[in-house]
């Protein structure tokens, strides 16, 4: 229970004007704490992709962040439709984003691959009809 900081964010459903706010807010907190800019960038990218997926593919959700001297852990939990085939969803280029979402610039199918690339540990658990939980860690 020593040097850890907990933060949590509510991600509202369907609200593109606010999507990215949790990631932006975490990014500025980390900057203020003096965390290395390369690490801040990794966290910001990984978390944004997860945050936006919660808005596009689920019905919003909750993000819990734990910052310790060793690592930054992000747990993103939603009660959306879940992912039937995680291996398929993880493939670069795979996307079920509808046209109206693609018109905004999403739907390249690179979000989950980015999350894996920019985190040092990545885990995704999902149950169809129940929801999805993504856990990512970035080492300090």
């Amino acid at each position: 229970m020593s040097n850890t900081i907990h933060m949590s964010y509510e991600v509202p459903a369907n609200d593109f004007t606010r999507a990215g706010e949790a990631s932006s807010s975490l990014k500025s907190s980390l900057k203020k704490m003096g965390v290395n800019p390369e690490i801040v960038r990794k966290v910001a990218i990984a978390m944004y992709e997860g945050e936006i997926n919660m808005v596009i593919h689920a019905t919003g959700g909750k993000i819990d962040v734990v910052i310790s001297p060793e690592e930054i852990e992000m747990v993103l939990k939603d009660q959306g439709p879940g992912i039937a085939d995680i291996e398929l969803a993880m493939q670069a280029g795979y996307s079920t984003a509808p046209d109206n979402i693609r018109n905004l610039g999403f739907g390249a199918g690179m979000g989950l691959p980015n999350m894996k690339k920019y985190s040092d540990e990545f885990n995704i658990e999902s149950t169809v009809g129940v929801g999805t939980t993504v856990t990512m860690k970035v080492k300090m």
Binding site: I45, Y48, G105, G107, A108, M110
Partner: peptide
């Protein structure tokens, strides 16, 4: 123009 490609 693809946001997640640019992001990555």
């Amino acid at each position: 123009d693809l946001l997640s490609v640019a992001m990555g």
